[in-house]
């Protein structure tokens, strides 16, 4: 590729750029996500399956989601009103989950009865 003009060395205001990249918060979030995932694998092979393990998995997943949404998607640095606009509707999903899991269990019980 021909390198005719040094156009990329200046920003819109005409100032030279190539400032130092601020990657520390990004790498910190990455370390958390990788660490949590490694811990999940450890649990998957050392802990017996059950409601307790599932609860731990779900809580850890929400932690990972926090790092992705807050740091990678930058939501933590947006205005409060935007943060709540995105987060509050998600609360509806809690009811969806509770209702449909209960529904599934009820249907299963109706089909299999005492076998469960």
């Amino acid at each position: 590729m021909a390198h005719h003009a040094p156009e990329h060395d200046y920003n819109a205001e005409g100032h030279a750029v190539h400032g130092k990249a601020n990657v520390k918060p990004i790498l910190k979030a990455l370390a958390w996500i990788v660490g949590i995932t490694a811990f999940e694998f450890l649990l998957a092979f050392t802990m017996d399956a059950g409601s307790l393990r599932n609860a731990i998995f779900i809580i850890l997943t929400i932690f990972k989601a926090f790092f992705i949404v807050a740091e990678f998607m930058h939501l933590r640095h947006e205005t409060k009103s935007l943060i709540w606009t995105i987060l509050v509707p998600m609360a509806l999903l809690i009811w969806l989950l509770v209702a449909l899991i209960a529904e599934g269990s009820a249907v299963g019980e109706a089909i299999f009865g005492a076998a469960r």
């Binding site: 999903l93 969806l96 989950l97 449909l100 899991i101 529904e103 599934g104 269990s105 249907v107 299963g108 089909i111 299999f112 076998a115 469960r116």
Partner: peptide
């Protein structure tokens, strides 16, 4: 909705 459906169907089975 997809993942919740997975949960529902899984609870419906043995």
């Amino acid at each position: 909705a997809f993942l919740t459906t997975y949960g529902m169907v899984r609870h419906r089975h043995l």
